[in-house]
Design a protein around this nucleic acid. Structure first.
Length: 462
RNA sequence: GCCUAAUUAGCUCAGUUGGUUAGAGCACAUGACUGUUAAUCAUGGGGUCCUAGGUUCGAGUCCUAGAUUGGGCGCCA
């Protein structure tokens, strides 16, 4: 019988003077002449468990006192309440056994390491306090997303990872091919002949599950897709990764207003959920990662998100006293400095909606002014653009016209146009960068530190 | 992709104007210690100063190129 540290932390009061067995890794070991202390972490809880070992109970006291940090051990002993000490209880060992030694050069020490060093040791960093907390919260956040949508009767749809659609926009994609790259089959025009490839056409890793999600929304009404996404851009920033996770809900019989309502409700739900399920972890982030994190989250929880049009936002930028490197323009997207100013100016998350049509994607619904589309971005402090969404163009003629204007090939997207031919209706959706949401919730400032084994340009270790 | 900074022990860092044998804390090893919790104390071992060239009587230190990493920006349905 073995107990997890999490179980003991929850039930220790009822287990006083009972024998328990724990397995885990040594976080620190402090030996004196006839007794010593091991702080044990088994990964099930953020906190460690103190194991007291004494020479009078152990034959192997000498070797136990030499167990190094990182070693895997088993400890059997008597759970004892210690109300006057720092920890509420401890284990008085009757048996301590080495399962897996950790050699002298174990890189993770009971001291502060730089994030860069830990990134290079991505296989060992989940053993540190910080990453133990980050990746537990990541797991809980995944669950929070599913429960938010499942509680609202959304259908989860697994959209494909490999697609043949290159029509979604200018985003660079990773190609998927089984052709011999040294000697590929060529067409008469001396171009690579993808008809000889595995799928008999050019394929790539997905940059979005949205188009397929739309098909399901026009069957199930409310759906969401949640999974990995791949971008081959040579982006070197702390908010971009080559492989990341994206959540994309899609709702039918709904407009942009409904879309923003859903996004706002969801963000608040996720914050509330994490506060409830990972209070220890949040407290840790609040102390050591971002001072004021809890205050920030509470503020977001309790105030309505500001909603301004792109036009109003640009106006606010133009009226700002601050000098920008890039001049704000009514027909342009924002630069990073503009986004930073806007979230500061509006004091928290802010929706920017009704964007000029020429800087947005072909599927976004044209507004009555003929100049803007029903698109929205949610900007948040620290993580930049957290959510981007729109109401979709449901009118076949207008959609076809827009595709022609933007050189989107129609042939590959006949199925997408079908959705407008057969029972079309207004619908909307958005995409949320899951990893950016996690950054926002934990205060971690680099996306590489919220992804277990991050992939970025020139880096695919592990 | 552009700009900028950094790279010295397992880790975090110091290293004077270019000049003796490159240092500290933690970690590791040995020992002391009857309640420690980043324990403490004593002693000890541990270095391709990122790589390749160059300048110089002499380079961790100066120059050139490259690699890697950080930060800023760009790209980003």
């Amino acid at each position: 019988m073995k107990q997890s540290v999490r179980y003991l932390l929850k039930n220790f009061e009822a287990l006083d003077q009972q024998e328990v067995t724990v397995y885990g890794w040594v976080k620190s070991n402090r030996a004196q002449k006839a007794f010593g202390f091991i702080n044990l972490n088994d990964g099930t809880a953020f906190d460690t468990l103190q194991v007291v070992y004494e020479s009078e109970f152990l034959d192997n006291f000498g070797s136990v006192s030499k167990y190094r940090v990182g070693s895997a051990i088993k400890a059997k002993g008597i759970l004892t309440l210690t109300p006057n000490r720092r920890d509420p209880f401890e284990i008085k060992a009757r048996e301590v056994e080495l399962i897996g030694d950790s050699s002298e050069d174990y890189p993770i020490q009971p001291k502060r390491h730089t994030r860069e060093f830990l990134r290079e040791n991505a296989h060992l960093r989940p053993r540190t306090n910080l990453f133990n907390a980050v990746f537990r919260v990541r797991s809980i956040l995944t669950h929070a997303i599913h429960s938010f949508f499942q509680e609202r009767d959304f259908i989860h749809v697994a959209t494909p990872i490999i697609t043949a659609s290159d029509a979604e926009g200018a985003g660079e994609t990773f190609g998927v091919s089984m052709l011999d790259i040294k000697n590929p089959p060529l067409t008469e025009a001396k171009e690579i002949d993808y008809s000889k490839d595995f799928f008999q056409k050019k394929t790539n890793l997905t940059v979005s599950g949205q188009l397929e999600a739309e098909a399901f929304a026009l069957s199930f009404r409310d759906v969401y897709t949640f999974g990995p996404t791949f971008r081959a851009e040579n982006s070197n920033t702390k908010t971009h990764a080559s492989e990341f996770w994206m959540l994309e809900p899609e709702i039918a019989f709904a407009d942009l207003e409904d879309d923003m309502d859903l996004a706002e409700k969801m963000v608040k739900y996720l914050i509330k959920y994490i506060k409830e399920k990972a209070p220890k972890e949040l407290e840790f982030f609040n102390r050591f990662v971002e001072k004021g994190l809890l205050k920030k989250l509470d503020y977001v929880l309790n105030s309505p998100f500001v909603r301004v049009t792109h036009h109003e936002a640009v106006k606010a930028l133009k009226e700002a006293k601050k000098k920008f490197e890039n001049t704000p323009d009514f027909n342009e997207d924002f630069a990073t400095e503009h986004e930073k100013y806007l979230v500061k100016h509006f004091g928290g998350p802010v929706f920017i909606y009704d964007w000029p049509k020429n800087i947005k994607a072909f599927y976004m619904r044209l507004n009555d002014d003929q100049e803007t589309v029903a698109a929205m971005d949610l900007l948040v402090p620290g993580s930049g653009e957290l959510i981007g969404g729109s109401q979709r163009e449901e009118r076949l003629e207008l959609l076809e016209k827009r595709m022609k204007e933007m050189n989107v090939p129609k042939e590959e997207l006949q199925w997408y146009l079908d959705l407008r031919r057969y029972g079309s209706c207004k619908h909307a959706g958005y995409g949320m960068g899951f990893d950016r949401m996690l950054m926002y919730l934990t205060g971690i400032k680099n996306i590489r530190d919220v992804i277990p084994f991050p992939r970025t340009p020139r880096n695919c270790e592990f």
